[in-house]
Write a protein that binds this DNA or RNA. Structure first.
Lengths: 189, 189
DNA sequence: AAAACCTGTTTATTATACTGAACGAGCCCA
DNA sequence: TGGGCTCGTTCAGTATAATAAACAGGTTTT
Protein backbone atom coordinates (compact mmCIF):
# COMPACT_ATOMS: atom_id res chain seq x y z
CA UNK A 1 0.00 0.00 0.00
CA UNK A 2 1.81 3.06 -1.16
CA UNK A 3 -0.99 5.55 -1.30
CA UNK A 4 -3.82 6.32 1.07
CA UNK A 5 -6.58 3.86 0.34
CA UNK A 6 -9.21 4.88 -2.16
CA UNK A 7 -12.10 2.77 -1.10
CA UNK A 8 -14.76 4.53 -3.10
CA UNK A 9 -14.92 2.15 -6.00
CA UNK A 10 -14.75 -0.81 -3.69
CA UNK A 11 -17.74 0.33 -1.75
CA UNK A 12 -19.65 1.04 -4.89
CA UNK A 13 -18.74 -2.33 -6.31
CA UNK A 14 -19.94 -4.11 -3.21
CA UNK A 15 -23.09 -2.05 -3.02
CA UNK A 16 -24.14 -2.47 -6.61
CA UNK A 17 -23.28 -6.16 -6.53
CA UNK A 18 -25.91 -6.50 -3.85
CA UNK A 19 -28.41 -4.33 -5.65
CA UNK A 20 -28.48 -1.81 -2.87
CA UNK A 21 -29.36 1.82 -3.46
CA UNK A 22 -27.68 4.69 -1.70
CA UNK A 23 -30.85 5.21 0.25
CA UNK A 24 -30.96 1.64 1.47
CA UNK A 25 -27.31 1.53 2.36
CA UNK A 26 -27.73 4.84 4.12
CA UNK A 27 -30.43 3.37 6.30
CA UNK A 28 -28.54 0.18 6.98
CA UNK A 29 -25.28 1.91 7.77
CA UNK A 30 -26.43 5.10 9.43
CA UNK A 31 -24.33 7.17 7.04
CA UNK A 32 -26.08 9.87 5.07
CA UNK A 33 -26.83 9.27 1.44
CA UNK A 34 -24.88 12.37 0.46
CA UNK A 35 -21.80 11.18 2.28
CA UNK A 36 -22.01 7.79 0.66
CA UNK A 37 -22.13 9.39 -2.74
CA UNK A 38 -19.12 11.56 -2.01
CA UNK A 39 -17.15 8.68 -0.61
CA UNK A 40 -17.88 6.45 -3.56
CA UNK A 41 -16.60 9.15 -5.89
CA UNK A 42 -13.55 9.75 -3.70
CA UNK A 43 -14.40 13.37 -3.03
CA UNK A 44 -13.72 13.17 0.70
CA UNK A 45 -11.47 11.46 3.19
CA UNK A 46 -13.93 9.51 5.26
CA UNK A 47 -13.56 9.03 8.96
CA UNK A 48 -12.53 5.64 10.23
CA UNK A 49 -15.80 5.40 12.12
CA UNK A 50 -17.73 6.17 8.97
CA UNK A 51 -15.90 3.55 6.97
CA UNK A 52 -16.62 1.06 9.70
CA UNK A 53 -20.33 1.90 9.59
CA UNK A 54 -20.38 1.33 5.87
CA UNK A 55 -18.63 -1.99 6.20
CA UNK A 56 -21.21 -2.96 8.76
CA UNK A 57 -24.03 -1.90 6.51
CA UNK A 58 -22.59 -4.07 3.78
CA UNK A 59 -22.14 -6.98 6.17
CA UNK A 60 -18.48 -7.25 5.42
CA UNK A 61 -15.38 -7.02 7.50
CA UNK A 62 -13.61 -3.70 7.59
CA UNK A 63 -10.55 -5.47 6.25
CA UNK A 64 -12.46 -6.59 3.21
CA UNK A 65 -13.37 -3.03 2.42
CA UNK A 66 -9.79 -1.93 2.56
CA UNK A 67 -8.29 -5.06 1.10
CA UNK A 68 -10.25 -5.17 -2.08
CA UNK A 69 -8.74 -1.83 -2.77
CA UNK A 70 -5.29 -2.57 -1.51
CA UNK A 71 -4.90 -4.87 -4.43
CA UNK A 72 -1.37 -6.06 -4.61
CA UNK A 73 -0.59 -5.14 -8.19
CA UNK A 74 2.47 -7.27 -7.92
CA UNK A 75 2.49 -9.74 -10.72
CA UNK A 76 4.55 -12.82 -10.54
CA UNK A 77 5.74 -15.32 -13.06
CA UNK A 78 6.51 -18.28 -10.91
CA UNK A 79 8.18 -20.88 -13.00
CA UNK A 80 8.82 -24.30 -11.74
CA UNK A 81 8.96 -26.28 -14.93
CA UNK A 82 7.91 -23.91 -17.57
CA UNK A 83 6.03 -20.70 -17.62
CA UNK A 84 2.98 -20.84 -15.45
CA UNK A 85 0.70 -18.12 -16.51
CA UNK A 86 -1.15 -16.44 -13.75
CA UNK A 87 -3.48 -13.73 -14.79
CA UNK A 88 -3.09 -10.43 -13.41
CA UNK A 89 -6.29 -9.53 -12.58
CA UNK A 90 -7.73 -6.17 -12.05
CA UNK A 91 -9.94 -6.39 -15.05
CA UNK A 92 -11.14 -9.80 -13.98
CA UNK A 93 -11.72 -8.90 -10.36
CA UNK A 94 -9.58 -11.75 -9.11
CA UNK A 95 -6.66 -11.04 -6.86
CA UNK A 96 -3.90 -13.55 -6.27
CA UNK A 97 -1.47 -13.38 -3.42
CA UNK A 98 1.46 -15.71 -3.00
CA UNK A 99 2.00 -16.94 0.51
CA UNK A 100 4.48 -19.68 0.07
CA UNK A 101 8.08 -19.03 0.93
CA UNK A 102 9.55 -20.80 -2.01
CA UNK A 103 12.67 -21.95 -0.28
CA UNK A 104 10.49 -23.81 2.17
CA UNK A 105 7.75 -25.05 0.02
CA UNK A 106 9.73 -27.19 -2.37
CA UNK A 107 7.36 -28.35 -5.04
CA UNK A 108 4.44 -26.66 -3.34
CA UNK A 109 3.05 -23.24 -3.90
CA UNK A 110 0.36 -21.64 -1.81
CA UNK A 111 -1.92 -18.91 -3.01
CA UNK A 112 -4.70 -16.87 -1.59
CA UNK A 113 -7.33 -16.00 -4.14
CA UNK A 114 -9.86 -13.21 -3.72
CA UNK A 115 -12.85 -13.20 -6.03
CA UNK A 116 -15.00 -10.19 -6.53
CA UNK A 117 -18.69 -10.89 -7.05
CA UNK A 118 -19.39 -12.61 -10.34
CA UNK A 119 -15.82 -13.29 -11.33
CA UNK A 120 -14.06 -16.34 -12.67
CA UNK A 121 -10.50 -17.57 -12.79
CA UNK A 122 -9.69 -19.73 -15.78
CA UNK A 123 -6.54 -21.81 -15.81
CA UNK A 124 -4.81 -23.61 -18.60
CA UNK A 125 -3.80 -27.20 -17.95
CA UNK A 126 -0.75 -27.60 -15.78
CA UNK A 127 1.84 -30.27 -16.23
CA UNK A 128 0.68 -33.87 -15.84
CA UNK A 129 0.48 -34.89 -12.24
CA UNK A 130 -0.09 -31.41 -10.92
CA UNK A 131 -2.63 -31.28 -8.14
CA UNK A 132 -4.49 -28.48 -6.49
CA UNK A 133 -5.91 -28.42 -3.00
CA UNK A 134 -8.23 -25.64 -2.14
CA UNK A 135 -10.07 -24.50 0.90
CA UNK A 136 -12.88 -21.99 0.91
CA UNK A 137 -12.36 -19.33 3.51
CA UNK A 138 -15.18 -17.01 2.63
CA UNK A 139 -18.15 -17.13 0.33
CA UNK A 140 -18.78 -19.85 -2.23
CA UNK A 141 -17.12 -20.92 -5.44
CA UNK A 142 -17.84 -23.36 -8.21
CA UNK A 143 -14.91 -25.42 -9.37
CA UNK A 144 -15.00 -27.04 -12.76
CA UNK A 145 -12.30 -29.44 -13.90
CA UNK A 146 -13.04 -31.27 -17.12
CA UNK A 147 -16.49 -32.76 -16.89
CA UNK A 148 -16.85 -32.43 -13.17
CA UNK A 149 -18.26 -29.38 -11.47
CA UNK A 150 -18.49 -28.88 -7.74
CA UNK A 151 -20.08 -26.22 -5.62
CA UNK A 152 -17.98 -25.36 -2.58
CA UNK A 153 -18.99 -23.30 0.42
CA UNK A 154 -17.13 -21.78 3.30
CA UNK A 155 -15.02 -24.39 5.01
CA UNK A 156 -15.21 -26.90 2.19
CA UNK A 157 -12.12 -28.54 0.86
CA UNK A 158 -11.37 -29.90 -2.57
CA UNK A 159 -8.45 -31.80 -4.09
CA UNK A 160 -8.24 -32.35 -7.82
CA UNK A 161 -5.86 -33.00 -10.64
CA UNK A 162 -4.99 -29.76 -12.33
CA UNK A 163 -3.43 -31.12 -15.47
CA UNK A 164 -6.56 -30.33 -17.40
CA UNK A 165 -8.23 -27.00 -17.95
CA UNK A 166 -10.13 -25.88 -14.89
CA UNK A 167 -12.00 -22.85 -13.68
CA UNK A 168 -12.92 -21.41 -10.32
CA UNK A 169 -16.00 -19.25 -10.42
CA UNK A 170 -17.62 -17.03 -7.85
CA UNK A 171 -21.19 -16.82 -9.03
CA UNK A 172 -22.51 -15.12 -5.95
CA UNK A 173 -23.01 -11.44 -5.29
CA UNK A 174 -20.45 -11.25 -2.53
CA UNK A 175 -16.74 -11.68 -2.25
CA UNK A 176 -15.16 -15.12 -2.05
CA UNK A 177 -11.74 -16.09 -0.76
CA UNK A 178 -10.03 -19.43 -1.14
CA UNK A 179 -6.60 -20.69 -0.29
CA UNK A 180 -4.96 -22.94 -2.81
CA UNK A 181 -2.07 -25.33 -2.48
CA UNK A 182 -0.58 -26.36 -5.78
CA UNK A 183 1.62 -29.41 -5.86
CA UNK A 184 3.69 -29.75 -8.94
CA UNK A 185 4.43 -33.12 -10.46
CA UNK A 186 7.28 -34.77 -8.60
CA UNK A 187 9.45 -35.93 -11.45
CA UNK A 188 8.78 -33.26 -13.92
CA UNK A 189 10.99 -30.61 -15.25
CA UNK B 1 -15.66 -6.17 15.59
CA UNK B 2 -18.94 -4.93 16.97
CA UNK B 3 -18.03 -1.37 17.78
CA UNK B 4 -16.17 1.28 15.83
CA UNK B 5 -12.52 0.51 16.25
CA UNK B 6 -10.66 2.27 19.04
CA UNK B 7 -7.17 2.26 17.70
CA UNK B 8 -5.71 4.72 20.16
CA UNK B 9 -4.16 2.22 22.48
CA UNK B 10 -2.87 0.12 19.62
CA UNK B 11 -1.04 3.04 18.15
CA UNK B 12 0.38 4.00 21.47
CA UNK B 13 1.47 0.45 22.13
CA UNK B 14 3.28 0.22 18.84
CA UNK B 15 4.84 3.62 19.23
CA UNK B 16 6.15 3.12 22.73
CA UNK B 17 7.34 -0.38 21.86
CA UNK B 18 9.61 1.26 19.32
CA UNK B 19 10.68 4.02 21.66
CA UNK B 20 9.27 6.67 19.39
CA UNK B 21 8.17 10.04 20.69
CA UNK B 22 5.15 11.87 19.42
CA UNK B 23 7.48 14.32 17.72
CA UNK B 24 9.36 11.62 15.88
CA UNK B 25 6.25 9.78 14.83
CA UNK B 26 4.79 13.07 13.73
CA UNK B 27 7.73 13.65 11.42
CA UNK B 28 7.74 10.14 10.07
CA UNK B 29 4.01 10.02 9.48
CA UNK B 30 3.24 13.58 8.52
CA UNK B 31 0.52 13.79 11.14
CA UNK B 32 0.73 16.57 13.66
CA UNK B 33 1.86 15.82 17.16
CA UNK B 34 -1.34 17.24 18.56
CA UNK B 35 -3.46 14.96 16.42
CA UNK B 36 -1.43 11.93 17.40
CA UNK B 37 -1.96 12.71 21.04
CA UNK B 38 -5.70 13.09 20.57
CA UNK B 39 -5.96 9.90 18.56
CA UNK B 40 -4.03 7.89 21.11
CA UNK B 41 -6.39 9.04 23.81
CA UNK B 42 -9.44 8.36 21.62
CA UNK B 43 -10.61 11.96 21.67
CA UNK B 44 -11.29 12.13 17.94
CA UNK B 45 -12.48 9.97 15.06
CA UNK B 46 -9.47 10.02 12.80
CA UNK B 47 -9.74 10.09 9.06
CA UNK B 48 -8.92 6.97 7.15
CA UNK B 49 -6.11 8.82 5.40
CA UNK B 50 -4.69 9.89 8.73
CA UNK B 51 -4.78 6.38 10.12
CA UNK B 52 -3.04 5.19 7.03
CA UNK B 53 -0.31 7.78 7.44
CA UNK B 54 0.25 6.65 11.01
CA UNK B 55 0.46 3.02 9.97
CA UNK B 56 2.99 4.04 7.38
CA UNK B 57 4.98 5.98 9.93
CA UNK B 58 5.05 2.90 12.13
CA UNK B 59 5.98 0.67 9.21
CA UNK B 60 3.04 -1.62 9.78
CA UNK B 61 0.09 -2.70 7.74
CA UNK B 62 -3.13 -0.84 8.25
CA UNK B 63 -4.73 -4.06 9.37
CA UNK B 64 -2.29 -4.41 12.20
CA UNK B 65 -3.37 -1.04 13.46
CA UNK B 66 -7.06 -1.92 13.38
CA UNK B 67 -6.76 -5.34 14.88
CA UNK B 68 -7.19 -5.50 18.60
CA UNK B 69 -3.82 -7.09 18.88
CA UNK B 70 -1.23 -5.06 17.10
CA UNK B 71 1.11 -7.86 16.25
CA UNK B 72 2.92 -8.42 13.00
CA UNK B 73 1.78 -11.59 11.31
CA UNK B 74 2.98 -14.32 9.08
CA UNK B 75 6.22 -15.38 10.52
CA UNK B 76 7.86 -18.66 9.83
CA UNK B 77 9.31 -20.98 12.40
CA UNK B 78 12.32 -23.04 11.49
CA UNK B 79 14.10 -25.97 13.07
CA UNK B 80 14.72 -29.72 13.29
CA UNK B 81 14.03 -32.91 15.24
CA UNK B 82 12.27 -36.22 15.12
CA UNK B 83 9.31 -38.59 15.76
CA UNK B 84 5.75 -38.50 14.54
CA UNK B 85 2.31 -38.70 16.05
CA UNK B 86 -1.09 -37.22 15.66
CA UNK B 87 -3.39 -37.11 18.62
CA UNK B 88 -6.95 -38.00 18.58
CA UNK B 89 -8.92 -35.67 20.31
CA UNK B 90 -12.50 -35.55 21.37
CA UNK B 91 -11.61 -35.25 24.99
CA UNK B 92 -9.59 -32.20 24.22
CA UNK B 93 -12.33 -30.47 22.29
CA UNK B 94 -10.35 -30.61 19.08
CA UNK B 95 -11.82 -32.44 16.12
CA UNK B 96 -9.69 -33.56 13.20
CA UNK B 97 -11.13 -34.49 9.87
CA UNK B 98 -9.02 -35.99 7.12
CA UNK B 99 -9.80 -34.60 3.72
CA UNK B 100 -7.00 -35.90 1.64
CA UNK B 101 -7.70 -38.75 -0.72
CA UNK B 102 -4.51 -40.60 -0.09
CA UNK B 103 -4.18 -42.01 -3.55
CA UNK B 104 -4.01 -38.46 -4.80
CA UNK B 105 -2.10 -36.74 -2.14
CA UNK B 106 1.10 -38.72 -2.18
CA UNK B 107 3.22 -37.31 0.57
CA UNK B 108 0.57 -34.77 1.44
CA UNK B 109 -2.18 -35.00 3.98
CA UNK B 110 -4.90 -32.48 4.42
CA UNK B 111 -6.79 -31.99 7.64
CA UNK B 112 -9.54 -29.80 8.85
CA UNK B 113 -9.20 -28.93 12.52
CA UNK B 114 -12.04 -27.64 14.66
CA UNK B 115 -11.16 -26.08 17.98
CA UNK B 116 -13.68 -25.60 20.71
CA UNK B 117 -13.22 -22.47 22.82
CA UNK B 118 -10.10 -22.57 24.96
CA UNK B 119 -8.63 -25.73 23.51
CA UNK B 120 -5.16 -26.64 22.36
CA UNK B 121 -3.69 -29.23 20.05
CA UNK B 122 -0.21 -30.34 21.01
CA UNK B 123 1.89 -32.20 18.51
CA UNK B 124 5.07 -34.13 18.95
CA UNK B 125 7.82 -33.39 16.48
CA UNK B 126 7.29 -34.91 13.05
CA UNK B 127 9.97 -36.38 10.86
CA UNK B 128 12.74 -34.07 9.81
CA UNK B 129 11.73 -31.98 6.85
CA UNK B 130 8.04 -32.19 7.52
CA UNK B 131 6.21 -28.97 6.84
CA UNK B 132 2.77 -27.77 7.75
CA UNK B 133 0.73 -25.18 5.92
CA UNK B 134 -2.31 -23.89 7.65
CA UNK B 135 -5.05 -21.51 6.85
CA UNK B 136 -7.45 -20.05 9.34
CA UNK B 137 -11.01 -20.37 8.18
CA UNK B 138 -12.79 -19.18 11.28
CA UNK B 139 -11.77 -17.53 14.50
CA UNK B 140 -8.21 -17.13 15.69
CA UNK B 141 -5.46 -19.48 16.79
CA UNK B 142 -2.03 -19.12 18.28
CA UNK B 143 0.62 -21.31 16.76
CA UNK B 144 3.75 -22.00 18.74
CA UNK B 145 6.70 -23.85 17.26
CA UNK B 146 9.86 -23.83 19.31
CA UNK B 147 10.55 -20.31 20.44
CA UNK B 148 8.29 -18.62 17.97
CA UNK B 149 4.66 -17.89 18.60
CA UNK B 150 2.28 -16.40 16.10
CA UNK B 151 -1.26 -15.18 16.39
CA UNK B 152 -3.33 -16.00 13.33
CA UNK B 153 -6.73 -14.67 12.40
CA UNK B 154 -9.33 -15.52 9.84
CA UNK B 155 -7.79 -15.68 6.42
CA UNK B 156 -4.23 -15.80 7.63
CA UNK B 157 -1.81 -18.36 6.35
CA UNK B 158 1.20 -19.87 8.04
CA UNK B 159 3.89 -22.23 6.83
CA UNK B 160 6.36 -23.78 9.22
CA UNK B 161 8.61 -26.72 9.74
CA UNK B 162 6.83 -29.25 11.88
CA UNK B 163 9.79 -31.34 12.90
CA UNK B 164 9.84 -29.77 16.30
CA UNK B 165 7.16 -29.83 18.96
CA UNK B 166 4.41 -27.38 18.14
CA UNK B 167 1.02 -26.41 19.44
CA UNK B 168 -2.05 -24.80 17.98
CA UNK B 169 -4.14 -23.05 20.58
CA UNK B 170 -7.54 -21.44 20.39
CA UNK B 171 -7.44 -19.01 23.27
CA UNK B 172 -10.64 -17.24 22.37
CA UNK B 173 -14.14 -17.90 23.62
CA UNK B 174 -15.44 -18.93 20.24
CA UNK B 175 -14.84 -21.77 17.85
CA UNK B 176 -11.87 -21.80 15.52
CA UNK B 177 -11.40 -23.78 12.32
CA UNK B 178 -8.22 -24.21 10.36
CA UNK B 179 -7.26 -26.28 7.40
CA UNK B 180 -3.86 -27.90 7.50
CA UNK B 181 -1.73 -29.35 4.76
CA UNK B 182 1.04 -31.59 6.03
CA UNK B 183 3.86 -32.38 3.70
CA UNK B 184 5.98 -35.25 4.83
CA UNK B 185 9.67 -35.30 4.23
CA UNK B 186 10.38 -36.42 0.68
CA UNK B 187 12.90 -39.15 1.37
CA UNK B 188 11.58 -40.39 4.64
CA UNK B 189 9.96 -43.79 5.27
C1' DA C 1 -48.22 14.66 -20.36
C1' DA C 2 -47.47 15.66 -15.97
C1' DA C 3 -47.46 13.86 -11.59
C1' DA C 4 -45.29 10.70 -8.50
C1' DC C 5 -41.48 7.98 -7.53
C1' DC C 6 -37.12 6.23 -8.19
C1' DT C 7 -32.00 6.88 -9.05
C1' DG C 8 -27.44 9.48 -7.73
C1' DT C 9 -25.52 14.23 -7.44
C1' DT C 10 -24.79 18.86 -5.60
C1' DT C 11 -25.75 22.72 -2.46
C1' DA C 12 -25.63 25.22 2.24
C1' DT C 13 -24.90 24.51 7.08
C1' DT C 14 -23.16 22.36 11.05
C1' DA C 15 -19.89 19.53 13.36
C1' DT C 16 -15.36 18.29 13.96
C1' DA C 17 -10.76 16.58 12.34
C1' DC C 18 -6.48 18.68 11.89
C1' DT C 19 -2.85 22.03 12.52
C1' DG C 20 0.68 25.32 14.75
C1' DA C 21 1.64 27.36 18.82
C1' DA C 22 1.34 27.82 23.64
C1' DC C 23 1.44 25.29 27.90
C1' DG C 24 2.85 22.62 32.11
C1' DA C 25 5.42 18.63 33.88
C1' DG C 26 9.66 16.12 34.30
C1' DC C 27 14.89 15.67 33.69
C1' DC C 28 19.77 17.15 33.32
C1' DC C 29 23.50 20.26 34.12
C1' DA C 30 25.51 24.60 35.67
C1' DT D 1 17.45 28.31 41.54
C1' DG D 2 17.53 28.77 37.64
C1' DG D 3 18.11 27.96 32.21
C1' DG D 4 17.61 24.81 28.52
C1' DC D 5 15.94 20.61 26.97
C1' DT D 6 12.56 17.00 26.34
C1' DC D 7 8.10 14.85 27.00
C1' DG D 8 2.82 14.78 26.19
C1' DT D 9 -1.32 17.70 26.64
C1' DT D 10 -4.43 21.56 25.59
C1' DC D 11 -5.61 25.94 23.20
C1' DA D 12 -7.53 28.78 18.99
C1' DG D 13 -7.98 28.87 14.01
C1' DT D 14 -8.68 26.66 9.79
C1' DA D 15 -9.84 23.01 6.77
C1' DT D 16 -13.05 19.73 5.78
C1' DA D 17 -16.05 15.61 6.91
C1' DA D 18 -20.87 14.92 7.63
C1' DT D 19 -25.58 16.23 7.41
C1' DA D 20 -30.23 17.69 5.58
C1' DA D 21 -32.41 19.58 1.80
C1' DA D 22 -32.68 20.82 -2.83
C1' DC D 23 -31.60 19.26 -7.37
C1' DA D 24 -31.42 16.95 -12.13
C1' DG D 25 -32.19 12.70 -14.83
C1' DG D 26 -34.76 8.56 -15.78
C1' DT D 27 -39.00 5.11 -15.09
C1' DT D 28 -43.36 3.98 -13.96
C1' DT D 29 -48.38 5.75 -13.04
C1' DT D 30 -52.74 7.61 -14.18
Amino acid sequence: MEKPPMIGKNIQKLRTARNLTLNVLSERSGVSKAMLSQIETDKVNPTLATVWKIARGLSVDLHDLLDSNAIPKRKFAVNRNEAIKILDTDEHGVTIKVFSPLEMAGDLEIYMLSFDPKTTLESEPHFPGTEEFLTVIKGSVKVTAGENSTELHKGDFLAYHADIAHTIANESASQAIVSMVVRYAPNQG
